[in-house]
Write a protein that binds this DNA or RNA. Structure first.
Length: 337
DNA sequence: AATGAGGGCAACCGCTCCATT
DNA sequence: GAATGGAGCGGTTGCCCTCAT
C-alpha cells in the first residue's frame, strides 16, 4: 500500500465567494487516499447515496475536493468494480472499440462490466501501446504507407494481439457487424449511436457483469438494423455467452481467465411495478433493483456488507459519427473472408 | 544485497459540456 | 444571453513496485 500524501493537520484556506463573503475552508488534501478517507467516503455513499460531489466531500468530513471524491469512488470504491488483469477477450473488445471510438475511454468502459475508463486508458497506454511499439520495430522493414497514424496503430495492435489469441469470437462478431453494417445501404442514415448500440453495452453503475437494462433497451430488446442489417433480437451474444431477455434469465458471458465473478447467473424478476426489475446475482448476492421513472432510474445494489443507493439513469451519450471516418476506421480491420 | 531502469497504476490537471440562475 | 458551478472526460504526472544487473 502506498503511503498517503499529506498529514492530518492541514492549514486552512480562505476563499472569497462571489458575493464577497469570505469562506474559510480546510485546505484540500491531495495525493493518495488513506484507508480512513476511503472508509469515510464509503460510509457516506452507503448512507446517503450519490449527490453533489462537493457536498459529499464536505458532509463526509473529507478534506478533499468533490472531484477527488468522485474519482476515488468511480475508480476504486465502487462495489461493482472488477479487479485483476484484463482477459484476452476484454483486450480484444477494448482494441476493437478503440478502433471505433478512439480515445473515448468512458464509452469503451461503458461496454466493459466492472472496468473504469481510467483502468482501460492505463491499460491501453501501457500494455497495448507497448505491443504496438514492438510490432512497429519488427515491421520496420516494411514501411507503412498509410497516412493515418492511428490506422496503422490499430492494424499493428490488432495483428499483434490476434496472433496471440483466438480471434474468432467477439472480434469476428464485431468485425462482421461492422462490415455488414457498412455494406448496408441503410448506413447512409445510420449514425454512431445506432452502430454502437449493436455492441454490448454495460453500465458502469450496475453490478458486476450486469447486463445493461436501460429503460429504453429493456422494453425493446431488438438491437441493430432491420432487413439487411444486424439484429440481435433480444439475445446479445457476448464473449460466447448469451443474454436472453425474453425469459428474463440472464446467462452472464463467461470470460476466460476472469476473476471470480464471471459465469454468473442473474435472475430477473418483474415486480408488481412493470417498470421495476430485481436482479439477483447468485455469486455475489447482489441484488439490483431498478425502478424506472421518467428516464431516471434508481439502482440499488445490496451485497455482502454493502448497501448502496444512487441515482443514475442517463442514457449513455454517444456523439454523432462522421460516416467517412467510420468507413475509414472499419476498413482497416482484416477481412475475415 | 544494492541499485537503477522501466512499468503499472492512482490521482491530479485542465478542459468542455450542461444545467441553473 | 451571460455568468456560474458541477460533472465528466482525456491527458498527464509522479509514486511505488518489480526485475534485471
Amino acid at each position: 500500500m502506498r503511503k498517503p500524501i499529506g498529514g492530518g493537520n492541514e492549514p486552512h484556506n480562505s476563499i472569497s465567494s462571489a458575493k464577497g463573503t469570505v469562506i474559510t475552508t480546510m485546505k484540500m488534501r491531495k495525493g493518495l487516499w488513506s484507508p480512513e478517507e476511503d472508509e469515510k467516503l464509503m460510509n457516506y455513499m452507503i448512507t446517503n447515496g450519490q449527490g453533489c460531489w462537493s457536498d459529499i466531500a464536505r458532509n463526509a468530513g473529507l478534506q478533499r475536493c468533490g472531484k477527488s471524491c468522485r474519482l476515488r469512488w468511480i475508480n476504486y470504491l465502487r462495489p461493482d468494480l472488477k479487479r485483476g488483469a484484463f482477459s484476452p477477450q476484454e483486450e480484444e473488445v477494448i482494441i476493437h472499440l478503440h478502433s471505433l471510438l478512439g480515445n473515448r475511454w468512458s464509452q469503451i468502459a461503458a461496454r466493459l462490466p466492472g472496468r473504469t475508463d481510467n483502468e482501460i486508458k492505463n491499460f491501453w497506454n501501457s500494455t497495448v501501446k507497448k505491443r504496438l511499439k514492438k510490432n512497429t520495430i519488427s515491421n520496420s522493414s516494411s514501411p507503412n504507407t498509410s497516412h493515418d497514424s492511428s490506422s496503422s496503430e490499430h492494424r499493428d495492435i490488432m495483428g499483434g494481439l490476434m496472433s496471440m489469441h483466438d480471434s474468432s469470437n467477439i472480434m469476428a462478431m464485431y468485425m462482421d457487424a461492422t462490415r455488414r453494417s457498412l455494406s448496408s445501404s441503410s448506413l447512409q442514415t445510420m449514425n454512431i449511436n445506432q452502430l454502437i448500440e449493436q455492441l454490448p453495452l454495460t453500465n458502469d453503475h450496475n453490478g458486476p457483469n450486469m447486463p445493461i437494462l436501460h429503460a429504453s433497451s429493456y422494453g425493446t430488446t431488438q438491437v441493430g438494423m432491420d432487413g439487411n442489417g444486424i439484429n440481435y433480437n433480444g439475445c446479445y451474444e457476448i464473449f460466447g455467452g448469451n443474454l436472453g431477455l425474453e425469459d428474463e434469465m440472464f446467462n452472464i458471458p463467461p470470460l476466460d481467465n476472469m476473476t471470480d465473478n464471471t459465469n454468473q447467473e442473474i435472475k430477473c424478476e418483474n415486480l408488481d411495478d412493470s417498470n421495476s426489475i430485481i436482479m439477483t446475482n447468485n455469486m455475489n448476492n447482489i441484488i439490483l433493483s431498478q425502478c424506472y421513472n421518467n428516464n431516471k432510474h434508481k439502482v440499488q445494489a445490496i451485497t455482502e456488507g454493502f448497501e448502496n443507493c444512487w441515482e443514475g439513469g442517463d442514457e449513455l451519450k454517444v456523439e454523432e459519427w462522421d460516416l467517412e471516418e467510420l468507413m475509414r476506421e472499419s476498413s482497416m480491420f482484416p477481412s475475415l473472408d
